[in-house]
């Protein structure tokens, strides 16, 4: 009979490689882990650097893909320096790269060298919302006929269900105009406006659409998305802007496919 020695408990030692490997991936001041080598115990600094480089550069590239207008505004060198800081400070927490960059606009707002572009963070916020809309669940949109079928005296009580892609962003700057010209392929001229702009981001079918909302309309649509009745959202919008035009705002929301359905009151 063979005697079988009882197997020892799992040696934690055997699984420490990730703990030793990861700190240096994002921190250039960490030296190469002592437990790795090249063949025949050759030094492995440049070999470990391949991994450092793969991680940092691929994540910087991911930010560049998510924020192309921000990159175009700042230029490649500025953007990559800014992205490198952010990647090192805030690596992704999800294996889905299209979820990355949610903290990047706030980082831009704090970033010392971006202080001369106070609108840049809002442009980045629109880009992040654009990608959320791109990946949002598919769904039908409320048709003008459905709304037209509601008796006029009931309109004020309507509550809507937002389409899964719909996002509203407010900015104290002309962020939508800056976003739009920098996402398009044409040349960017001088931007004359300094007015605050809000963005309506939607994806009624497969293409993401970004519209500028008039003052008041942002409050109105924001209220509807939050579940307010049409009457309540319209009166709040009227307080923001005495010239608020509810008919125009309703036209915009139908055109944009911002809502999926009338939830109740119809």
């Amino acid at each position: 009979m063979r005697s079988v020695s009882p197997s020892p408990p799992e040696p934690a030692r055997g699984c420490r490689y990730a703990e030793g490997f990861t700190p240096g991936l994002l921190d250039p001041s960490c030296t190469t882990p002592a437990f790795v080598a090249g063949p025949n115990c050759k030094a492995a600094d440049r070999r470990f650097n391949v991994y450092r480089n793969n991680v940092t550069v691929s994540l910087m590239n991911a930010l560049a893909d998510i924020f192309p207008a921000t990159l175009r505004i700042t230029g490649e060198a500025f953007f990559r320096a800014m992205a490198r800081f952010h990647v090192r400070e805030t690596p992704p927490t999800s294996p889905l790269l299209f979820e990355y960059g949610r903290d990047f606009p706030d980082f831009i707002e704090r970033y010392e060298y971006a202080q001369s572009m106070p609108w840049l963070a809002d442009v980045a916020r629109i880009e992040r919302a654009w990608l959320d809309a791109y990946h949002a669940a598919d769904g039908g949109v409320l048709s003008p006929a459905e709304l037209a079928a509601v008796p006029p005296d009931r309109l004020g009580y309507l509550v809507f269900e937002a389409h899964p892609a719909t996002r509203i962003l407010r900015s104290a700057f002309p962020a939508v105009t800056i976003f739009s010209v920098n996402r398009a392929s044409g040349p960017v001229g001088r931007i004359e406006t300094t007015a605050a702009e809000s963005a309506l981001v939607t994806r009624p079918a497969l293409d993401v659409e970004v519209r500028r909302l008039a003052p008041g309309a942002d409050r109105f649509l924001g209220g509807l998305v939050a579940g307010e009745t049409m009457e309540r959202a319209a009166s709040a919008a009227g307080e923001v802007n005495a010239d608020f035009d509810p008919a125009a705002a309703i036209r915009t929301m139908l055109e944009a496919g911002a809502f999926a359905a009338i939830r109740h009151g119809g």
């Binding site: 055997g14 990730a18 793969n54 991680v55 927490t93 294996p95 790269l97």
Partner: peptide, 16 residues
């Protein structure tokens, strides 16, 4: 909590 977006290597041992 971090995702490194690279295919990182592992040692080849009984434990792994």
């Amino acid at each position: 909590t971090a995702y490194y977006n690279d295919l990182l290597p592992l040692p080849y041992t009984e434990a792994t």
